[in-house]
Design a protein around this nucleic acid. Structure first.
Lengths: 285, 285
DNA sequence: AACACAAGATTGGATATCAATCAATGCATT
DNA sequence: AATGCATTGATTGATATCCAATCTTGTGTT
C-alpha cells in the first residue's frame, strides 16, 4: 500500500513491543537513516506515525524517543482498554453466533494446551491474541484498530514495569469470560474483564528508569536482513518463570553496550546496573 | 511542541470538519505546498497525520484524498462512538461528583438557551461540545483522544449524507441522559445513548458522490491569513432549517468552480448538479 | 563552585533533482 | 464510430545537499 516510511514504522513498532527498544531510548534520525539505509526524511515520516500511535514522543528540536508513559497514563490506557473490551463483550453477548463462541473456546483451549506443554512463549502470544480475537468478533474494523493501538501501548508499558502476576488466574479468566458471556451473564463477565485488567495493573511497580541493553542498531538488526522470519529470530521473549536468577539478558550483550537513553541529570551511578534485572518479562494476558 | 506539519494538519482537519474540503477531494502535494507556502515534504507529513487520523486516505503514487468512508465504515464509526460513550457513562454514574453533574447541566442549559434564541450555529457547536465535555469528565486523556478522533470522523461523515433529523429530540436526549445518570438509572441512560446515535444514523442517506464547491485554495483561504480568528470567518455552517429552499451555497461560489474531486469513470452528466443540494447541513448532536 | 560563553551536534525545513507510476491524450486499427 | 494501444504529461516517492534554529556540551572566567 504505502512506501518505506510505513514499513519502517512497522519495524520500529515491532521492535518496541518486543521490548528491544525500551522507553526513553533515543530514536535519532541520522542513526535510523543509516540503519534502514534511507534518507532522514523517510525516517522522520515513520517517527511521525509512531508518535501518532502513542509509541514515540517527538520533542521539538530534540528528536524522537520511545514513549515513556507516566503511571497516570498507564492507568488511563488500561481503563480505556477495559472500557473497550467491556463494550465489545456487551455487543457479543447479544450478537455472537455459535461459530464465534466456538472460535473463542478453541482459542482458549489452544492456550491451555500451550501452558500444559510448558511452551510459555506460545502461551504468552496466544494470551495476547485472545483479546484481539475477542474484539475481531465484533466485526467492527474501527473498533479493532482502536483496540489494537491500546494493546500496543500496554505492551510498551511492560518495558517500564516490574511485574508480579499470577498467570494461572489470568489464563482462567479468558475461559470464564467466554463461559459467562455465552450464558448471558453479561454483568459478571464485564466485572471479570475489569478485574482481569486491574489484576495486571495492581501487579505493576513502575521503575521509571529503564536502561537499554543494546543500541538501536543492535535492537533492529534482526528485523532487517531480507526475508528472515522476524517471528523466529527477533522476538526475545525470555520468560523468567519462577526462578528469579539474575537475568542473563543484562549481561550477555555486554555492559559495554552504549546507553542510548535520555535521562535527566540525576547522577547515573545511583541507579545501579542491578536495578535493570527484570523479575518478569512474560506477557500478562 | 511540533512544527509546521502539525499546524498544517490541524488546518486541514479544521477545513474537513467544517465541510469546506469534502470527501474525495484531492489533496495534491504541490497545490497544498503553494497554498501554505511550505515545501512538499511538510505537506506530506501533514497528510500522513491526516491519514493516521482517518480523515484522509493516501493511495500509492496517486496521492492523498479526503477520506470517503463507506456506509459500512460509517456504521462502525457510530458503533464505536456509542460504545465509548456508553462506557464513559457507566464510569461517570459511579464516580462523578456534584461539580461534574453541575457542569453537564450548565452545558445543556446553555444549548437550550441558544436554541431558544434562535442561534442555530451556536446550538450546533454546543451540541457537539456536549459529547466532548461528557468524555472529558472521565478524566482520561487517552479516552478523550480516542473519542475526539471518532467525533472528527462522524463530522466528516456529514459531508457525505443527506440528513433528516428531528433536532428537538436530539437536544432533549442530552438533558435526559444527564438526568438518568444522576439518578443512577445507568441502563436506561446507556440505551438512550444508543438510541441517540441510532437516530442520527437512521437519518442518513448516503449519496456517495459529493461535489466540492470550491478548490482547496478557496476552501483553505479563511484559515491562512495571519491572526484572523478562524471561528468567526471560516465556519460556513449554513443551516437549512425547515426551509428546503435551493441551497445557495451551490451557486454563490459559481458553477465555474473547478471540480477537484476524484471520481470513477462513470459518466459525470448522470449525477446532475441538482443532486448536490443538501437538505440539511446542521450538526446532529 | 557557579556562571557565562563558545563550539559542536541535531533537528526542522528548503530546494533541486531523479525514477517510478498513473492518467490522459491522441493515433491507429477494425 | 468504437475500440485498443502507445506516447506524453503530471504527480508522487524518495534522495542529496544545504541552511537556520536550537539544544547540549565543554571550556573558561570570576
Amino acid at each position: 500500500m504505502s512506501g518505506r516510511s510505513q514499513s519502517i514504522a512497522d519495524t520500529l513498532t515491532r521492535a518496541i513491543i518486543d521490548h528491544r527498544l525500551v522507553p526513553g531510548c533515543k530514536l535519532g534520525e541520522r542513526e535510523l537513516a543509516e540503519i534502514f539505509d534511507v534518507s532522514r526524511i523517510v525516517v522522520r515520516q515513520a517517527l511521525i506515525r509512531l508518535a501518532d500511535d502513542g509509541l514515540a514522543q517527538i520533542e521539538r528540536n530534540r528528536g524522537a524517543f520511545v514513549a515513556k508513559p507516566s503511571m497516570q497514563e498507564a492507568m488511563e490506557i488500561y481503563d480505556a482498554l477495559t472500557l473497550v473490551e467491556q463494550g465489545v463483550a456487551a455487543q457479543l453477548s447479544d450478537r455472537l453466533g455459535p461459530a464465534g463462541w466456538a472460535e473463542l473456546r478453541h482459542h482458549v483451549e489452544r492456550q491451555r494446551q500451550a501452558v500444559a506443554a510448558g511452551n510459555d512463549a506460545l502461551a504468552d502470544v496466544l494470551g495476547q491474541e485472545f483479546h484481539t480475537v475477542f474484539v475481531r468478533l465484533s466485526r467492527n474494523k474501527v473498533m479493532q484498530e482502536i483496540h489494537a493501538q491500546l494493546v500496543r501501548r500496554t505492551t510498551l508499558l511492560r518495558s517500564l514495569i516490574t511485574a508480579d502476576f499470577d498467570y494461572c488466574n489470568l489464563l482462567d479468566d479468558h475461559s470464564r469470560v467466554v463461559d459467562l458471556l455465552e450464558k448471558g451473564r453479561l454483568k459478571q463477565a464485564m466485572d471479570l474483564i475489569d478485574t482481569h485488567h486491574r489484576t495486571v495493573v495492581r501487579g505493576y511497580i513502575m521503575n521509571r528508569e529503564v536502561f537499554p541493553e543494546m543500541t538501536p542498531a543492535e535492537a533492529l538488526a534482526p528485523y532487517l536482513d531480507g526475508t528472515a522470519d522476524a517471528a523466529t529470530t527477533a522476538v526475545p521473549l525470555r520468560r523468567m518463570a519462577k526462578s528469579p536468577g539474575n537475568g542473563d539478558a543484562a549481561t550477555h550483550l555486554g555492559a559495554a553496550a552504549h546507553l542510548h537513553v535520555h535521562l535527566p541529570k540525576t547522577d547515573p551511578a545511583s541507579t545501579s546496573r542491578a536495578s535493570t534485572k527484570k523479575t518478569n518479562r512474560g506477557l500478562p494476558s
